[in-house]
Simulated assay, not measured.
Amino acid sequence: MREEFALQYADRRAKERGYEDYRIVYREFMIPPMGVLKFQANNEIWLVTYISWGLIVKSDYGRYDNWYTQGIAENAHEHGDRIEIINTRKYQRTIRFLQVILKTKDDGSKA
């Protein structure tokens, strides 16, 4: 998903979920050879903007990989809740996300 589209998509998805306020954070992870990164992303939407060949992203929203999946899969670039990134290759790989943090009135943040 290109960054420009991801920004528009983030705004639409936040509003669809009933949130008027949200914060955008750019994230980049380097996944070591044959490594796995797991994290929680509750009340957030993570949009894949770049993924190296050989990485797989799995979450409660679905699965994305850029070498087994054929064609466009619904929500392939959108992830949330429990996220797992798997490097299937012998070399370090990179993945970039646009993290959309959905804000509520009582989340303690300054808005």
Rank of each mutant, 00 (worst) to 15 (best):
E44G: 04
E78C: 12
G108M: 05
S52E: 08
R63L: 13
R12K: 15
M34F: 14
E78S: 14
A14Y: 03
F5C: 03
G18D: 11
K58D: 09
G80D: 02
A10H: 06
I31H: 01
E74F: 10
D11Q: 14
K15E: 12
Y61W: 13
Y22R: 14
E44P: 13
I45T: 03
V36C: 04
R27Q: 13
F39L: 11
Y64W: 08
R27H: 08
N66R: 14
Y64G: 00
A10F: 06
D21V: 12
R63C: 05
G54V: 07
L98E: 00
Y68M: 09
G71V: 03
P33M: 04
A10R: 04
V48Y: 02
K103H: 08
D81V: 15
I45L: 15
F5S: 07
K105T: 07
F29T: 01
I95L: 03
R82I: 06
Y9A: 10
Q92D: 01
Q70C: 02
Q70E: 08
N75D: 11
I95D: 00
P33W: 04
D81K: 14
R17E: 12
Q92I: 03
P32Q: 08
A111V: 14
R17P: 01
R13N: 11
T88M: 04
A111F: 10
Y91L: 05
E74M: 10
K38G: 09
I51A: 13
D65P: 00
T94Q: 11
V100M: 03
D106Y: 07
L7E: 08
A14V: 01
K90R: 09
A14D: 06
P32C: 05
T69S: 15
R2F: 15
L98C: 01
T94V: 13
Y19N: 08
K90H: 04
I56V: 15
E44Y: 02
K105D: 07
F39H: 11
V36K: 12
E84M: 11
E28C: 14
S109W: 09
M34G: 06
K103L: 15
K105S: 07
R17K: 13
S52P: 06
Y61L: 10
H79S: 08
